[in-house]
Design a protein around this nucleic acid. Structure first.
Length: 423
RNA sequence: GACCCUGUCGUCUAGCCUGGUCAGGACACAAGCUUUUCAAGCUUGCAGCACGGGUUCAAAUCCCGUCAGGGUCACCA
């Protein structure tokens, strides 16, 4: 049975690049009916923090990447110490102060990378490697090799930045008398200007969550970076990806992260989501913003969400589009006011508010009829009144259809805002 | 600098292994349709095999070189 692992270090939040590595490992494990191990590499006690561990586990769960086994390297120091001691006794390593260092034999090392094919290294250019540091903690490569062997990892799937670590680690396997696993080095994810950084967008998975991205969209986008399901398919669910996934079809070239495409995908997932489910996801954002309290009108909220669904790219977009429904006092920007409310329409607004006040059913169809009758009587174009009214009601020049907007705003607020528009 | 990896539209990619379809799709961009605005949707357009040599009747595809980009050279992981 195959077994893979994702081994993040809790010295920071789960990075979007790390999430992609985790995802490919996870997909490979599921595709091969193998196991997926999560190993927290917290050997650096100074920089490792519990809050980062929590965040990493939380982000993994949120993305839907469940693990079969979980390990912490900080709990395994005895194992590393024993292995180092054995190498010392066998004369394969030597001491320098309290540090244990591996003698690097000179030889040619061949890696048969599952993605890149054969890679050849000459260890003559590689220095002796520190295995145990003076403070008694293992180095990354040593702990990594000891654990991958102990946990019976069959395939190491990791970022391209680890290619040059591979020959060093193979030498450690040899010294330990262990058989190395198979390796697959994934292409890196880059930003617009080199490394992926905050300039391109959020870096931590938890930040994407806060910004209103859906886990299925992130996972979908990430899998498309360096892999394709074929058949010109863009929207791919985890289950479908698992069926089609093949490590050999993973690309070799680094990919540049595109926030535009991620947002597009996120919007696609939002559009196809039932209003009820979407509402569930938006409620926490509304509560945090103070737009709704505990006893809000669920049915009405679902209608509002449904109205804005089609134009949202992220969940937080809703907060910006629909803010006028939740606030009591509307503020209209100076420029917008100048453009649409500088011409005095108080007479028309007054007539409109009188007409709609009399409506028994305050729905879009009735509102539209009342509105159109009025403009016909006044002998003006509908658009002459539509735009100023929208601005007066929403503070925006853009938004859903005006009659839907009025209906959802409700009679009271609509009339009140119409009458207050030119005061 | 040394070693290693990579190179198809602006971006993500299909095609490369097993040479021979106008190099296909998506995002973005532009135009049109629709329309009370913005979106969404539909239609159309723009745009690419890094360069130079080979091999071959035929090269994005196989080989070599050049150039460009990236990664690693820690008692960080």
């Amino acid at each position: 049975m195959i077994k893979v692992r994702f081994a993040p270090s809790p010295t920071g939040y789960l990075h979007i690049g790390g999430a992609r590595t985790a995802l490919f490992n996870w997909m490979y494990a599921r595709a091969q009916a193998g196991k997926f191990v999560l190993r927290i590499e917290d050997t650096d006690r100074q920089r490792s923090r519990q809050e980062f561990v929590d965040e990493i586990l939380d982000s993994m769960r949120w993305l839907g990447l469940a693990w079969d086994e979980l390990y912490y390297q900080s709990e395994r120091f005895d194992v590393y110490r024993q292995r180092a001691q054995a190498l010392l006794e066998q004369g394969k390593a030597y001491k320098d102060g309290d540090a244990v260092i591996l003698k690097m034999p000179v030889e040619e090392i061949k890696i048969d990378d599952l993605i890149r094919g054969e890679i050849v290294f000459d260890t003559a250019t590689i220095k002796d490697q520190v295995l145990m540091k003076s403070d008694g903690s293992p180095t990354y490569s040593f702990a990594c090799v000891v654990d991958d062997a102990a946990m019976e990892i069959t395939h190491v799937i990791r970022g391209e930045d680890h290619i040059s670590n591979t020959p060093k680690q193979i030498m450690i396997y040899q010294a330990l008398g262990l058989k190395p696993p198979k390796f697959a080095h994934l292409p890196l994810i880059m930003g617009d200007e080199g490394r992926l950084s905050k300039r391109t967008g959020a870096v931590a998975v938890s930040d994407y969550r806060k910004e209103g991205f859906l886990p299925e969209a992130i996972v979908n986008y990430l899998m498309l970076l360096g892999w394709s399901p074929g058949g010109n398919q863009e929207k791919v669910g985890l289950a479908c990806a698992v069926k089609k996934f093949s490590i050999k079809k993973v690309n070799k070239a680094a990919a540049i992260f595109s926030m535009d495409k991620l947002k597009w995908l996120n919007g696609q997932y939002i559009k196809e989501m039932p209003a009820g489910k979407l509402t569930d996801l938006i409620i926490p954002f509304l509560k945090e913003k103070g737009y709704i309290s505990a006893d809000f009108d669920r049915e009405r909220l679902e209608k509002i969400v449904d109205l804005f669904k089609v134009r949202m790219a992220t969940l937080t977009d809703f907060l910006e589009w629909a803010d006028f429904i939740f606030v009591d006092k509307l503020t209209v920007g100076g420029e917008t006011r100048q453009q649409h409310l500088s011409h005095d329409r108080s007479k028309e607004f007054q007539l409109l508010s009188e007409r709609i006040s009399r409506l028994d059913t305050f729905d879009a169809a009735s509102l539209e009829k009342a509105f159109r009758d009025l403009v016909a009587e006044l002998g003006i174009q509908a658009s002459e009144l539509v735009h100023p009214v929208r601005v007066a009601l929403t503070g925006k020049t853009i938004g859903p259809g005006l009659f839907d907007t009025m209906a959802i705003l409700g009679k009271e607020k609509t009339v009140q805002r119409l009458q207050a528009a030119f005061l």
